[in-house]
Amino acid sequence: MAKTSDVSDKIIQALADYLKRDAASIQTTHHLRDDLGLDSMAVIEMLYRIEEVFNLQIPDQDLVGLTTVGQVIAYVQGRVAPPKASAKAAEHTPAKAAAKKPAAKPSTKSKKA
């Protein structure tokens, strides 16, 4: 599982390399277009690089919500870290619950025809 600081560092470094800027000058509050000067095409190129770095695919419908550096970091962190709730839910799946139930006892009553 990737740590938040690892994700943040990689994304900020990717932005810094792309923009040819010092990574320390890029803040999580920076807006990709307004503060960093990325146009629509540049944002798509950056997100493509991030997809490659983290081996994930960002669906088109998710692009709308990724407007700041912090939003991109939070989104990627959520995608690379397995959700904790899913791991706990897997322990209580119906298949496991059914396996723990005792088998139904056969009826001892005789059937009359």
Results as ranks from 00 to 15, higher is better:
residue 2 A to W: 10
residue 5 S to P: 01
residue 5 S to T: 13
residue 6 D to R: 00
residue 7 V to M: 06
residue 7 V to G: 03
residue 7 V to L: 05
residue 11 I to G: 02
residue 11 I to V: 05
residue 12 I to W: 10
residue 14 A to V: 00
residue 15 L to I: 06
residue 15 L to P: 02
residue 17 D to E: 08
residue 19 L to V: 06
residue 19 L to K: 12
residue 20 K to H: 08
residue 20 K to F: 01
residue 21 R to D: 13
residue 22 D to G: 06
residue 23 A to C: 02
residue 23 A to F: 01
residue 23 A to Q: 02
residue 26 I to L: 12
residue 26 I to K: 10
residue 27 Q to V: 14
residue 29 T to K: 07
residue 29 T to I: 12
residue 31 H to N: 15
residue 32 L to W: 12
residue 34 D to M: 06
residue 34 D to G: 04
residue 34 D to I: 04
residue 34 D to R: 04
residue 35 D to K: 13
residue 35 D to T: 14
residue 36 L to Q: 09
residue 37 G to S: 13
residue 37 G to K: 14
residue 38 L to R: 00
residue 41 M to D: 03
residue 42 A to V: 12
residue 43 V to L: 05
residue 43 V to F: 15
residue 46 M to A: 11
residue 46 M to V: 14
residue 48 Y to H: 14
residue 50 I to Q: 12
residue 50 I to E: 10
residue 51 E to Y: 15
residue 51 E to T: 09
residue 52 E to H: 11
residue 54 F to K: 08
residue 55 N to V: 00
residue 55 N to E: 03
residue 57 Q to V: 00
residue 57 Q to F: 02
residue 58 I to Y: 09
residue 58 I to T: 05
residue 58 I to L: 01
residue 58 I to N: 03
residue 60 D to A: 11
residue 60 D to L: 06
residue 60 D to V: 13
residue 61 Q to G: 09
residue 64 V to H: 08
residue 65 G to F: 15
residue 65 G to D: 15
residue 65 G to Y: 15
residue 66 L to G: 09
residue 68 T to Q: 13
residue 69 V to G: 08
residue 70 G to L: 01
residue 70 G to M: 01
residue 71 Q to P: 04
residue 72 V to D: 11
residue 72 V to P: 05
residue 72 V to Q: 02
residue 73 I to M: 09
residue 73 I to V: 14
residue 74 A to D: 15
residue 74 A to W: 01
residue 75 Y to H: 13
residue 76 V to M: 07
residue 77 Q to H: 14
residue 78 G to I: 00
residue 79 R to V: 00
residue 79 R to E: 00
residue 79 R to D: 01
residue 80 V to M: 12
residue 80 V to Q: 13
residue 81 A to E: 10
residue 82 P to F: 14
residue 82 P to G: 08
residue 82 P to E: 06
residue 83 P to G: 08
residue 84 K to P: 08
residue 85 A to Y: 04
residue 85 A to D: 09
residue 85 A to P: 02
residue 87 A to M: 05
residue 87 A to R: 05
residue 87 A to N: 04
residue 89 A to G: 09
residue 90 A to D: 13
residue 90 A to K: 14
residue 92 H to C: 05
residue 99 A to E: 15
residue 100 K to Q: 12
residue 101 K to V: 13
residue 101 K to Y: 06
residue 101 K to P: 06
residue 103 A to Y: 05
residue 105 K to L: 07
residue 107 S to I: 06
residue 107 S to Y: 08
residue 107 S to C: 13
residue 110 S to A: 12
residue 111 K to H: 02
residue 112 K to C: 03
residue 113 A to C: 06
residue 113 A to L: 10
